[in-house]
């Protein structure tokens, strides 16, 4: 007799079919909510979009105004006996409907920039990816070895961690003006902001991960004749590698959040430039499209890295329970 697992069981993995369904649901539910708000009349729609201004002098076709104001002006016109304004309920312009954003996902790539000096969307994206890449690479180049040293030797832990602990509370964007003054207005200060935002967290997280390595592995290695150098490179480093890899995936996500701030510094650039520019033109469908593209790039690269991790570390038990 086989029991089907109840949907809500503490720490019991769901069967594969349900698991896929629930994963789908996690995307579907917000989307459904968005659709409902956009398409079901009267569910929200706090504004009125004017179709005919009637006798109201400042109304213009296509203009969106508060419902209350519309009613007030209609009443006034009624009382005065002049032509009544007409309009239909509408959502604010900053909440485009799903189909508009879906279209924008395509059109924003093929629409020529407003001015010739401006960049296409894919060029902006490529710029952003480069900034992330260099910022994260530089941070890792210093952060990973320092974290491992601090996690392995109490001497380095004392030397490095107190200052890093202090520095990580300083918000990275606060260094924006300084970074521009020192590094100019192009990519360098942006890379610096991502570096500052990532590096200090990275040192602490990796030091912690290193400390979590089972100490009995180090003891076993010592009884097998391993000394300091070999302990670090033959035991500590391979021992923490799967965890380190997971840390890096999380940190890469953080780097993306610093990107938006970094790109506003100096001459605004990359995907952030695109977003602010489109918001200025009130093309909110393009704004949403760009935000969704960031999400897709983030999720896709993380899934890719997770899959790669499984191949890289076949002995790692934890990665089996990893998502996807």
């Amino acid at each position: 007799m086989s029991h089907s697992t109840p949907l809500l069981a503490v720490r019991r993995e769901l069967p594969p079919r349900q698991r896929r369904f629930v994963t789908l649901l996690s995307f579907l539910l917000p989307l459904l909510l968005w659709c409902a708000v956009s398409y079901v009349p009267g569910l929200w729609q706090p504004l009125v979009k004017i179709t005919d201004p009637g006798s109201v002098s400042y109304f213009k076709p296509g203009m969106q105004i508060e419902k209350a104001l519309f009613r007030q002006e209609t009443a006034k016109a009624e009382a005065a006996g002049t032509a009544l304004p007409a309009g239909e309920p509408a959502n604010p312009v900053y909440l485009p409907a799903p189909h508009e954003v879906a279209t924008a996902l395509y059109t924003s790539f093929v629409t020529e920039p407003a001015r010739r000096s401006e960049k296409w969307l894919h060029e902006s994206l490529w710029e952003s990816i480069q900034v992330i890449f260099w910022g994260f690479l530089l941070s890792s180049l210093f952060g990973v070895p320092l974290g491992i040293l601090a996690g392995t030797f109490p001497f380095f832990s004392r030397l490095i961690e107190p200052f890093v602990e202090f520095f990580r509370y300083l918000p990275a964007p606060a260094f924006g003006a300084l970074a521009v003054a020192i590094l100019g207005i192009y990519h360098a200060p942006k890379i610096a902001i991502i570096f500052i935002g990532t590096f200090f967290q990275q040192v602490l997280i990796i030091a912690n991960t290193t400390r979590k390595l089972d100490p009995s592995l180090l003891e076993a290695a010592q009884t097998l004749g391993a000394k300091n150098r070999a302990l670090v490179f033959k035991v500590v480093v391979p021992g923490i590698l799967p965890e380190l890899y997971r840390d890096m995936r999380i940190l890469l996500g953080w780097a993306w959040t610093y990107l938006i701030v970094a790109e506003l510094i100096g001459t605004s650039s990359g995907i952030t430039w695109f977003i602010t520019q489109q918001a200025r033109y009130k093309n909110f469908d393009n704004v949403f499209a760009a935000i969704i593209i960031i999400g897709i790039i983030g999720l896709a690269s993380d899934l890719l890295l997770a899959a790669l991790g499984k191949r890289l570390f076949p002995w790692d038990k934890q990665s089996k329970g990893d998502r996807a």
Partner: peptide, 15 residues
Amino acid sequence: PDRGMVFQGYTLFPW
């Protein structure tokens, strides 16, 4: 290495 040790918790290198 002149004194080999076997621990209760195996302590094999998982990688």
